[in-house]
Write a protein that binds this DNA or RNA. Structure first.
Lengths: 144, 144
DNA sequence: TCTATTTCGGACAATTTTGTCCTTTATTGT
DNA sequence: ACAATAAAGGACAAAATTGTCCGAAATAGA
């Protein structure tokens, strides 16, 4: 479904958002520890999120990553996924055709339309605020 | 979503099923030409399908691949996907956790359950016969 | 200013996926 | 038996993804 990079990206963003809601900035090491990901690789993913203005980074002592408290509700999952994996998972053809559509449908086109739209809907309506609340309420988890 | 190998596998299986419904056996070269895939790589994918008893192969002159006319309605898309990519796309966690469930849900678990079930439902109910009919009726296509 | 901390960024390495080439094996027709 | 055809299978190559390492740049505090 999602690439490893994207999985880490989503987990990291959710964790950063959760801590940011509580007014706390988190470091790369904290993040990697919390989401159980390779530190250096996670750093690369975080760079992508930073360049895409999804998270803000601060260098130096007591630096780290954060997400503006008031912006978490405006950052949708689709933005994170698009920044790392592109939007083909929720916009593209199931069989990889570039120009699959109602007029030139692939064998799965009609069967897949509903699923893709539902996935798209989910990604485009779910915000980091939603997800971070669940984490802070202890009803969802970033580790197994 | 699906790997390239799986995309080729689905396309190839649909094409073989379509031709088999018309009593025709098809060669590797015909298949690769029809679905626009690299010949040698497609051969590997077809081997996987053959080993999994999804298609039958016949060597020698006038040989090729076929799918028993009466079995096409019993072969579900899920079987093909599972043979090539495994079942994690329609059974696994969106964030890659091995033990994500109602008791230990990842941040996306509840939002993803519906989508995954719908995908699973689609893959487990769609047969090669269904898909091959559309091809033979000229309402869906294997090439762009 | 100096040091410690932390992200940034480039280069590199390992692994997986994708793709190629060539030999072997089976089968058919002559 | 022989030649031609087509899949099977092994070895290898290229590309993409995942992951590591290390020095540079920025920043805060002493």
């Amino acid at each position: 479904m999602f690439s490893k990079a994207c999985e880490y990206g989503i987990k990291a963003a959710v964790f950063i958002a959760a801590r940011s809601q509580e007014g706390k900035r988190v470091s790369l090491n904290e993040i990697a520890g919390e989401i159980n990901s390779p530190v250096a690789f996670t750093a690369k993913v975080l760079q992508q999120l930073t360049r895409n203005n999804i998270v803000d980074s601060v260098r130096g002592p007591a630096g780290g990553f954060e997400i503006n408290k008031n912006k978490a509700d405006k950052i949708r999952l689709s933005k994170i996924v698009a920044a790392i994996d592109g939007d083909s998972i929720y916009k593209g053809c199931a069989l990889g055709f570039q120009n699959c559509n109602e007029n030139l449908p692939c064998p799965l086109h009609h069967k897949f339309v509903l699923i893709r739209n539902e996935l798209r809907q989910m990604l485009e309506t779910t915000s980091l605020l939603d997800l971070s609340k669940d984490i802070n309420d202890g009803v969802t988890f970033l580790k197994s």
